[in-house]
Deep mutational scan, measured.
Amino acid sequence: QTQEFDNEEEARKAEKELRKENRRVTVTQENGRWRVTWD
C-alpha cells in the first residue's frame, strides 16, 4: 500500500505508526513529494 505526503514530517509520522504495527515500511522522496509504502 502507498500513501503520499507533502512533507517529510507527515511521512515520518505515518512511518512511525506503521512500524508500531510491525509492518515493513519504505519512505521515498520523489518530485518533492514523500511516499510511504508498506506491506
Rank of each mutant, 00 (worst) to 15 (best):
E10N: 05
D39Y: 15
G32R: 03
E8H: 03
V36H: 01
A14N: 03
V27H: 01
R12W: 07
R19K: 11
N7E: 05
V25G: 03
N7W: 04
T2K: 05
K20H: 10
R24K: 10
V36R: 00
K16L: 13
E21L: 15
E9R: 08
T26W: 13
Q1R: 12
D6K: 05
R23Y: 15
A14H: 11
Q29F: 15
R35Y: 12
E17P: 02
A14R: 15
K13I: 13
N31Q: 07
N22I: 04
N22E: 05
E8M: 04
W38N: 03
D39W: 15
T26L: 09
R23C: 10
E15R: 02
R23D: 06
Q3G: 03
E21R: 12
A11Q: 01
E17L: 13
E30N: 07
A11L: 02
E30I: 13
V25C: 05
E9N: 08
V25A: 04
R23G: 08
W38R: 02
R33L: 10
G32D: 05
A14L: 15
E21T: 14
R12Q: 04
T26P: 00
E8W: 05
T28E: 07
N31G: 12
W34V: 00
V27T: 04
W38E: 05
Q3S: 07
E8L: 04
E10S: 09
R24M: 12
K13A: 14
N22S: 08
T37R: 10
K13W: 13
A11D: 01
K20A: 14
A14Q: 08
L18N: 03
T37H: 10
T2H: 09
T26N: 07
T26E: 11
N7Y: 06
T28D: 04
R35E: 02
E9A: 12
Q29S: 09
K16S: 12
E30R: 07
R12D: 02
V25H: 01
V27Y: 01
A11I: 01
E15M: 08
Q29Y: 15
K20E: 10
L18E: 02
E4H: 09
T2P: 04
E10W: 05
T2N: 06
Q1F: 15
R12C: 05
E17I: 12
Q3E: 09
